[in-house]
Amino acid sequence: MTDFKLISDDEWRQRLSPEEFHVLRRAGTEPPHIGEYTDTTTEGVYACRACGAELFRSTEKFDSHCGWPSFFSPLAGDRIIERRDTSHGMVRVEVLCAACESHLGHVFEGEGYDTPTDLRYCINSISLTLREE
């Protein structure tokens, strides 16, 4: 089994496209409304594009009209890491894959969406791969 946390930047660059590397390994953000999963309603499991770890289920995906796929809960709390992010003059909570520590997006609370958790996991499409069920 690969310990994804030990993979070098050079190896990640070989495994990922330049755009994937920018978002997943350098905490970039893809432009809004262009990602392949922004408006997808296909049933399945969303996995980390870098390592394949299962992260989110389509049943927890909702339309937030924010320009990126939104989920109200991960598959399990141990699938992701949440950490304080003070970049770009903002205070946010970054979401990373727990298996490989790749950047996925951010989570926001208290925005008033009609979801069971009042959370919005705003995730870059390029960080995910959908496995249809």
Rank of each mutant, 00 (worst) to 15 (best):
L75W: 00
S87H: 12
P74I: 05
T86S: 14
G110D: 14
H103M: 07
E82S: 10
C97D: 13
F71D: 01
M1N: 12
S64N: 00
E30T: 06
A53E: 13
V23K: 04
E11L: 12
T41E: 05
G35T: 04
C100F: 09
E43F: 05
T59H: 09
V93I: 15
P18R: 12
T2P: 02
D78V: 08
F71G: 02
R15T: 09
L130T: 04
T2R: 15
D114K: 13
S87F: 02
T115M: 15
I81A: 02
E94F: 08
P74S: 08
T29F: 01
Y46A: 03
R79G: 00
E82K: 13
E30I: 03
L16D: 09
S58F: 02
R49L: 09
T40Y: 00
R92I: 15
E109F: 02
R26M: 08
A99D: 15
R84Y: 01
L55G: 00
G35F: 09
D10G: 15
S73W: 10
S87V: 04
E133S: 13
G77M: 04
H22E: 13
A50E: 01
R83A: 05
A50M: 08
A76I: 06
R26A: 08
S70M: 03
R131Y: 08
E19M: 03
G105Q: 08
S70W: 03
E109M: 04
S102G: 15
I80C: 07
P31K: 06
R25D: 06
S125I: 06
H33T: 02
D10A: 15
H88C: 09
S17D: 09
S70D: 12
D63Q: 07
C100R: 00
G35I: 00
S73G: 12
S87T: 15
M1D: 13
W68A: 04
T86P: 10
R83Q: 08
D39P: 01
E109P: 02
H88A: 11
S64M: 03
L6D: 07
E94W: 10
L6P: 00
T86D: 13
L75H: 00
E19L: 02
R49Y: 03
L75E: 05
E111F: 12
P31D: 14
T59R: 11
R26W: 01
W12P: 01
E30G: 10
Q14T: 14
G110C: 13
N124E: 12
E133Q: 14
G89S: 09
P74C: 08
A47E: 05
P69E: 00
P116T: 10
S58Y: 06
S102W: 12
T40D: 10
Y46C: 02
Q14E: 15
T117Q: 12
S125M: 07
R79H: 09
R84M: 04
F62E: 05
D114G: 11
E43Y: 03
D114F: 06
F108I: 06
P18G: 14
D39Y: 12
A98H: 14
Y46E: 02
L104S: 09
H106S: 11
P31L: 06
L128P: 14
P31E: 12
V107G: 02
